[in-house]
Design a protein around this nucleic acid. Sequence first.
DNA 1: AATATTTTGCAACACAGTTGCATTTGCATA
DNA 2: TATGCAAATGCAACTGTGTTGCAAAATATT
Lengths: 138, 138
Amino acid sequence: MHPRIIDTLKRSQLSVTDSRKKILELFLERKAALAHADIEQHSGDEFDRVTIYRTLQTFVEKGILHTIPSADNAVRYALCKDACTEGHHHDNHVHFMCDLCGTTYCLDHVTVPSVQLPAGYQVHQIDLVASGTCIKCQ
Amino acid sequence: MHPRIIDTLKRSQLSVTDSRKKILELFLERKAALAHADIEQHSGDEFDRVTIYRTLQTFVEKGILHTIPSADNAVRYALCKDACTEGHHHDNHVHFMCDLCGTTYCLDHVTVPSVQLPAGYQVHQIDLVASGTCIKCQ
DNA sequence: AATATTTTGCAACACAGTTGCATTTGCATA
DNA sequence: TATGCAAATGCAACTGTGTTGCAAAATATT
């Protein structure tokens, strides 16, 4: 088991349960973002659907995961680089979705450029999702 | 009825039907993006749910509408500025979602700044969605 | 080890979106 | 303007996604 798992859970004041350990491990193993369905597949029928939903929700609330918007009605989740504090604004990094293999990446080191909006719009958050062909699919 | 409706449909080689006219009119009247549910509400029970889904799909295929990604699992649709040609790359404009009233705007005149991605990622499209407080909710 | 708290699994539900097929509508052509 | 064909619609049924309440089980606390 990945050494960071127990730590991460305790730091977020969450009790350490099988499903949380397993789901967190999945995210740590893979570099890419995962949708609920991916997790359901990779964990077999070990956990109830509802448990997975609740675990994801909890992780987002605690700043362990963040969501990535998409136009295909499938919210993806990815690890926050360093478990952000609660009520966080994460550092705004760019996301990349591969049209071919469907993998979604967090490009942690690419920051979202600032945008000049018309007067009257107060921006709290900016999401930038690029799509195209990823490294592996070239 | 808005004068552009029949034109737009014919230019896209679509037959002119009640549902298409009505749905297109909704988009032309309002400046904001609409989700399926919004359309269902505003058209009463005039059309079947399925018809609305199919009409939206068709409009997207023909480049009359485009989709706006979001993190809340509710795809919104908005008019393409000038009915784009099929197999289009639209001009990349910015979208704005108001956290308070939920309205989604197409900021047609704000273009997405270019982003420098790591080598190996080929970008075909970029979506930038800002969220915060809109003009009306200040 | 015993108790309090949290999490899980199950059942049931609400909503979103899709598919197949029979019926209706729109369009082209005579 | 009537006729026939292609396309769009409505209905029923279904899949998938996400939520809620509650009893049972696991975890944390003493």
